[in-house]
């Protein structure tokens, strides 16, 4: 049923949070970097579980992917004004909840083009607005949300620090050739050559 073959005819089964499954073409799925990293080369034995997202959201996301299969390779964000009629309809027919679900799913699946258009659409909501107008357009985070977000950031920073410390420790222990100053490197090479030459002539 699923295979790592690259033909666009190949269909993959996707499983949603409701446990429902549906088909998506390989060509559409390959727009997801997450899919590419996880399944493209090894294939999948059963339905691919994207169970954090409901069926409606996943279908919407893959509807976009199916539509843009034949578009040129993604080369950075397009201005909203350059979107096609189909693209505009695609976004306009979503309510806010669906739009947010689509952004989250697109972000998880790492579909650059869709994520980027969604971001552009959000930025457009704020474009040309002053502070008071922005306050009406966006929901400001509550203290709890802010705290939770900060905690996540702190955790990430602590983890990154740990990794950096470990890397620094390893680097201290390992003296690589690249780190030697050029003159020292030249000298080392000369010494090696001299030794080689001497041992050769001794023989």
């Amino acid at each position: 049923m699923t295979s790592p073959a690259s033909s666009s005819e190949v269909k993959y089964l996707i499983e949603s949070s409701e446990g429902n499954t549906f088909d998506v073409s390989g060509a559409a799925l390959r727009q997801s970097n997450t899919f590419n990293a996880m399944f493209l080369n090894i294939g999948a034995d059963g339905p691919i579980p994207f169970t954090d997202y409901n069926e409606a959201t996943l279908k919407k996301v893959f509807e976009y992917c199916e539509h843009s299969v034949n578009e040129e390779n993604y080369s950075g964000p397009k201005h909203q004004d350059d979107l096609s009629k189909w693209d505009l309809n695609f976004f306009n027919e979503m309510d806010q909840k669906m739009f947010i679900d689509v952004i989250n799913a697109s972000n998880f699946l790492d579909i650059e083009r869709l994520t980027s258009y969604c971001c552009e659409r959000i930025a457009r909501m704020l474009r040309g607005k002053n502070t008071q107008e922005m306050i009406k357009v966006i929901t400001l985070p509550t203290a709890e949300e802010l705290e939770a977000k900060q905690k996540v950031e702190e955790k990430k920073a602590a983890a990154a620090k740990k990794v950096a410390e470990k890397a620094a420790e390893t680097a201290e222990k390992t003296e690589t050739l690249e780190e030697l100053p050029v003159q020292q490197l030249v000298q080392t090479t000369r010494n090696k050559l001299t030794r080689k030459y001497l041992s050769f002539s001794n023989e």
């Binding site: 947010i100 989250n104 994520t115 969604c118 959000i122 009406k136 966006i138 929901t139 985070p141």
Partner: peptide
């Protein structure tokens, strides 16, 4: 999208973008 948009509930990477 008449309701205020909950921007800060989106993933960090999206807000950054």
């Amino acid at each position: 999208m008449e309701k205020p948009f909950p921007l800060f509930r989106l993933p960090r990477i999206v807000i950054e973008e």
